[in-house]
Every structure is written in structure tokens, then in C-alpha cells.
């Protein structure tokens, strides 16, 4: 009993904090979503489901949902693929099959760099990288070759791809580390046995490494999915007109922020937030369900 009380006393603080600062605001958002609160008055009016009816016809919000969906479809696949290849090369991709490629220690640090930078800094840096004149890191060489500068962020049909490239650039390093750790836990004998059986680098990757990393990849998938559903910071800081030009890069979270803090429609913004909450929840449940499988024991 005393022991239990002791443990309980340690849990009270974090659980209370969690309830007050995480669960309670969620619950309140559901209530605010059913009001026409504009953020400054003290007496919001209850308007039922009107906000939800309105968001069904909100073209900009659905455009944002579409962008999140596109990110969700591509970002995890590309990032995981790149990270797997890099992790494989860094750990077991060397000539002997038991060490990384030449210089892997250096690359290991290099890949992790973007992860160390704050998202805002990354966004501001890439504004300069993508700059459409001869001060832009990408456009300066293009212009030196006599080509027209590319509007990486100012051309509505390119901008979202630029956003995705930055998200991938920033995420890959972390997953290289994650997959490296996963690789390290695979017994060496497995690779040796495969090698004795005559497996080349390719078949070793697809027949040994990938199946044994399944659990780690699955976790990465959920994490990256959540990044794809969010993407707020990069979009808000890096793109023109916060999700532009002409809303070509906007995402759900950006529309929530815009409606709340620029249009002062906190009620409506909360309704968007509630919808996003269910999208994210749905994604997490679905991806865990679909990927459930027997574990490989070793």
C-alpha cells in the first residue's frame, strides 16, 4: 500500500499536467468548434454544427487536405527508401558486406545535420536556396548557364514539390540513424550466412535487411505520416503568403492557423482542427491495423 502510494505520488504531477494541458484543450476545442467565437469576446454563441457544414464547402480547406494527402502518399515512401539505402550503405554496404562504405563515419554525421537545425532556420535557409534571382543557391548556377531562373517557391505548380523536398531533406537523417540502430540489432551471422549462400548486395538488402527491419520501418511510417499531416512550420515560414502562391502549398494546419489568428474565427478554426484530429487519428489506426503481422523472432 505504501509502495503504491509512493508510485502514485510520482504520477500525479505528470498525469495532471497531461490532463490540464493536453486532454482539456482537446475537449474544449470540440466545444469551441460549435460556437462562433471570434477570440476576443467573453461570451461565444453556441451554433451547433454550422461550422462543420461550412467547412464542407470550403474549397481552400479541401485543397489543403489534398496537399496533405499528396504528402502522405509520397513523403513516407521517399524518405524511408532514401534512409534505408543510406543506412544500408553506411552499415553493411561496404565491400566485405560487414562494414559501411568508405567514409561512412563522415556521412553518418553529415546526414544527421539537418535534424540538429530548428525547423524555422531550415525554412529561412531554404528561402535563400530557392531565391529566384542570382542570389539563389540553385538559381545562380542555372542563370550562369544562361537558363531562366526557376520559381521554386513562386511558381504555383512547383512550390509544393519544393516544400516536399525540404521536408524529405530534413527527415532523412533521423531515419538513417533509426535504421542504423535497427541494423545493428540484426545478428552479424545472418549477413554472413547469406553471404556464404552467395547473396549479392541487392538480394541481401531485399531478402535479409528489409524483412528484419520491418518493425522499425513501420514505426517510421507512422512518424512520417504524422509529419506529412502536419508540415505546418515549413509551409508557414518558407512559402510566400503562408501556403501560397495562390494557396498552392497550403496544408490543414496552416488553414487552421489562418482562420484562427488572421481571420479571428476561432470557432471555425476549431472545427477545422477537430476534422484534422480525426484525419490524423484515422491514419494512425489504419496504418497500425494494416501493418500488423507476425513478428520475426531471432
Amino acid at each position: 500500500m505504501r509502495r503504491r502510494l509512493f508510485i502514485f505520488s510520482f504520477l500525479v504531477a505528470p498525469v495532471t499536467l497531461y490532463l490540464v494541458y493536453v486532454i482539456a484543450p482537446y475537449a474544449q476545442a470540440f466545444y469551441i468548434a460549435m460556437t462562433n467565437w471570434r477570440g476576443v469576446n467573453a461570451a461565444p454563441q453556441f451554433i451547433g454544427l454550422e461550422n462543420f457544414g461550412r467547412l464542407l464547402g470550403d474549397g481552400v480547406f479541401w485543397k489543403a487536405v489534398g496537399h496533405n494527402a499528396l504528402l502522405l502518399a509520397l513523403l513516407p515512401v521517399i524518405t524511408i527508401a532514401l534512409a534505408l539505402v543510406f543506412a544500408y550503405l553506411l552499415n553493411v554496404g561496404g565491400a566485405g558486406g560487414r562494414t559501411g562504405v568508405w567514409g561512412s563515419k563522415f556521412y553518418r554525421v553529415l546526414f544527421f545535420f539537418p535534424q540538429v537545425l530548428a525547423v524555422t532556420i531550415v525554412a529561412v535557409l531554404f528561402q535563400q536556396v530557392f531565391r529566384p534571382d542570382d542570389s539563389g543557391m540553385l538559381n545562380a548556377p542555372l542563370m550562369a548557364l544562361g537558363l531562366k531562373p526557376v520559381g521554386f517557391l513562386s511558381n504555383p505548380s512547383i512550390a509544393l514539390w519544393s516544400v516536399m523536398a525540404v521536408l524529405i531533406w530534413q527527415a532523412v537523417g533521423f531515419y538513417v540513424v533509426l535504421f542504423s540502430a535497427g541494423l545493428a540489432s540484426i545478428p552479424r551471422e545472418m549477413f554472413e550466412a547469406a553471404q556464404i549462400d552467395g547473396a549479392g548486395r541487392m538480394s541481401m538488402f531485399f531478402r535479409v535487411t528489409l524483412p528484419l527491419l520491418r518493425d522499425t520501418v513501420q514505426v517510421a511510417w507512422v512518424y512520417l505520416g504524422i509529419i506529412a499531416m502536419d508540415a505546418f512550420a515549413i509551409v508557414w515560414v518558407m512559402t510566400d503568403q503562408h501556403g501560397g502562391p495562390d494557396r498552392s502549398t497550403t496544408v490543414m494546419a496552416a488553414e487552421i492557423y489562418r482562420n484562427a489568428f488572421q481571420y479571428f474565427q476561432f470557432g471555425y478554426a476549431s472545427a477545422l482542427g477537430v476534422v484534422m484530429f480525426f484525419f490524423v487519428l484515422g491514419f494512425a489506426v489504419l496504418s497500425l491495423r494494416l501493418s500488423r503481422r507476425e513478428r520475426i523472432e531471432f
Partner: peptide
């Protein structure tokens, strides 16, 4: 030590009222 822990547990509970996102008429 137990009193200290009990006191520590009460502090966040006191802050609970202040953390409301909804407006409060003051």
C-alpha cells in the same frame, strides 16, 4: 518527504483553472 511530495502534487492542480482556452468573464 511525503509531505513535500503531496505538496508538489497539488501545485499543478491549482494551475488547472488558469489553463482554460475558452474565455472567462473577469
Amino acid at each position: 518527504r511525503r509531505e513535500l511530495l503531496r505538496a508538489a502534487a497539488l501545485i499543478p492542480a491549482a494551475g488547472a483553472l488558469a489553463a482554460c482556452a475558452t474565455p472567462v468573464q473577469q
